[in-house]
Design a protein around this nucleic acid. Structure first.
Lengths: 218, 218, 218, 218
DNA sequence: TATGAATGAGTTTTCATTCAT
DNA sequence: TATGAATGAAAACTCATTCAT
């Protein structure tokens, strides 16, 4: 995120940093309310700064959006890498899956961007790193037979995306833990046939390990 | 869709009809590539007509988008209603689920619109009708115990919603039948524990009943 | 008006003439309802013909408008010239004044055009002829001392224009004979002091000589 | 007119105010030359600013036009109200008539708008207030018998309305004081028969009380 | 330095005019 | 021949970005 600080000078970046923070927060808020179709004016107003200040801190709107989305992607990658250290392969996978879904769910801009329509934003590098981490994680789970082996590893990120509450689907208001309910179903569908013991879909059905406050839908 | 033809009385001239078709096709294409943020100029160019022609056939860009999305929604509703007639509740539900996911997959603009960021388009009425049909269908499946009963009926459309290959998820190219692979997993996750016999996730794993050509993503 | 008939061929102009008539009538109607801001589509629809037919008969919209306005101007000129033959100079002047005001009042398009904002229409030649006729008429009236001689002849057309009911002035609905009421006042103001016998401003206060049906506000 | 300045709180920056002034002036000029059918591009060019600047200062073209016209109407109303305070009823009326005619003359856009073809602009409220003031003024003049009593009060605004030099009437170039010459005649026509002493129609024939510079046709 | 004023390319939409059917 | 379909230039308006204050 520091990449956003345009100038590389020597001096007291105190308020500069504060402004960047405000801008990022305001942008996240705006994206969650209106998707990627936001205006610089809107962002500046929410952040309580002028347009000039915005552009002093940020090279362009797209750069700001990309930085924010990149940040989330990197967090996902981080989660995947940490999950590789979990002693239990399934448990590790579940932890990642939760984080992955929640992060996407709490940043509908990301979902929009990854859905292909934010194509102008260059996220390539970061996405590749995420891919690799997920690949390893799924492989481990399949090698230890905790995920059914008739799946390609690529199927996993696709089916996990399914858990993201597409805001109103068919006009229905999603519960705040809708993603958790969907994930439960999907995880059940991922287990090998022999393992398939259903745990009821209720709040608390999954470990409540929460994602870092940084991304929880501000 | 014929509602788009502005004039009413006489049979439209051959070239007029051809142009409407081209415009609708071009718009579908454009939406699938770029989402709802498309321009009239882009549509007209893809359709190979002038801007004036576009506006001769269509009252406004929003009206065109709404017509296309409404059309898909209505097709979904139709599928849900027909599925209620299937003798087997699970089989009926699967048929609908397939159609629902495939239709969403072939019209990612719909996904965007339903995701709330297409709010300017008025789809209310059509969505309500879809809701009712889905509600009935899921209820029947739960009453006959072919879908696990720890789920709320609302969970179903949510978990199915993004089985569309959210274009590149984490930068991966989706297979053409990616939606079918995700659906397989989800359906497995929806069965009651006792029923859970896994059928392998491969092409052809589900009955290949295809959606009417009208919507197959042209 | 015949100038409008585009082709100069040899054959049965019967329906051609009919179409021109319809178009002219439709245009007059439209102008009176909406001013000069009318569309070809509107005219064609009112006339019950297609756009192609309109353009077969008429070189351009401006040409049509000019023809119609020209026609009215020529009628004014004609009235002025006939008024010169009236035995009584004042009576002749009054007759012209009436026709002049009524013609302008019944063709608000004309008023709009002459008010300078229809400048794209070339009415020069016809207006010059009208000028000359009015000049003579006023001169005769002043030479015989029936119009006060502290006026320039040019003042007359200007002050007569005053009688045209500027539709709603200050939001008031004009009476159908509003122009006649105004004209009465103006004519009173034009007489030499010695002649100034007031005749009450009521309907019928002036001779009801009506303008040829051709122009009576269709 | 200040209502046009979009922002409210702080004092507008010098250049902002300068641009608003330029825009208003440019618009007045444009209206006087071409009527209400002016374009934003034209206004912006005359004012020497970009289109964006125009829209930063003004919510819409119609709002700008309405503001300008409203301003003139209110000035008229003000004049009528002040005229009620004149000790002599006729003198008061003449003062108003002058202002009324001159204001209309200096804003022919107003003429157009009031003529009904500017219907999209909402001037209702302001016009009503003008009506009331004029009504009172004329009533007072008639009750004291300085205006002939065979007239309806409504006749007065009508007969005064187009004393504006309807630009070229019949192609004649109006003198700069043409409106004054017409007004002289009309006022003579308004007096009761017994009062009718003609004062010659020459420049200076009426008190030269000029309208505030704000409206003198810049 | 921080602000918000200015800019103009780009977007939706209209309409006079031409041309295929 | 009559129709109305097609066209694109032009209009109102928005918004990312630059620059004067």
């Amino acid at each position: 995120m520091d990449a956003l600080l345009t100038q590389s000078g020597t001096r007291p970046r105190a308020d500069a940093r504060r402004n960047v923070d405000r801008l990022v927060t305001a942008t996240r808020q705006a994206i969650n309310e209106q998707g990627l179709a936001i205006t610089t004016r809107d962002i500046a107003q929410r952040a309580g700064v002028g347009l000039g200040t915005l552009y002093r801190r940020i090279p362009s709107l797209d750069a700001l959006l990309a930085a924010i989305l990149t940040d989330t992607i990197d967090e996902m990658t981080d989660r995947a890498q940490r999950a590789l250290d979990a002693p239990d392969a399934w448990q590790g996978f579940v932890e990642f899956a939760e984080a992955y879904v929640q992060l996407r769910a709490s940043s509908c801009g990301l979902h929009e961007a990854l859905s292909g329509h934010g194509g102008r934003l260059d996220l390539e590098l970061h996405i590749t790193r995420l891919q690799q981490a997920v690949h390893q994680l799924v492989q481990r789970a399949q090698h230890t037979h905790v995920i059914r082996d008739d799946l390609d590893w690529c199927d996993i990120p696709f089916v996990l995306a399914t858990a993201i509450p597409a805001d109103h689907t068919i006009g229905l208001e999603p519960r705040s833990d809708q993603w958790r309910r969907s994930l439960r179903i999907i995880l059940d569908g991922l287990r090998p046939a022999t393992e398939s013991s259903r745990s009821p879909v209720v709040a608390g059905g999954l470990p409540q390990k929460s994602v870092s406050a940084e991304h929880s839908g501000r």
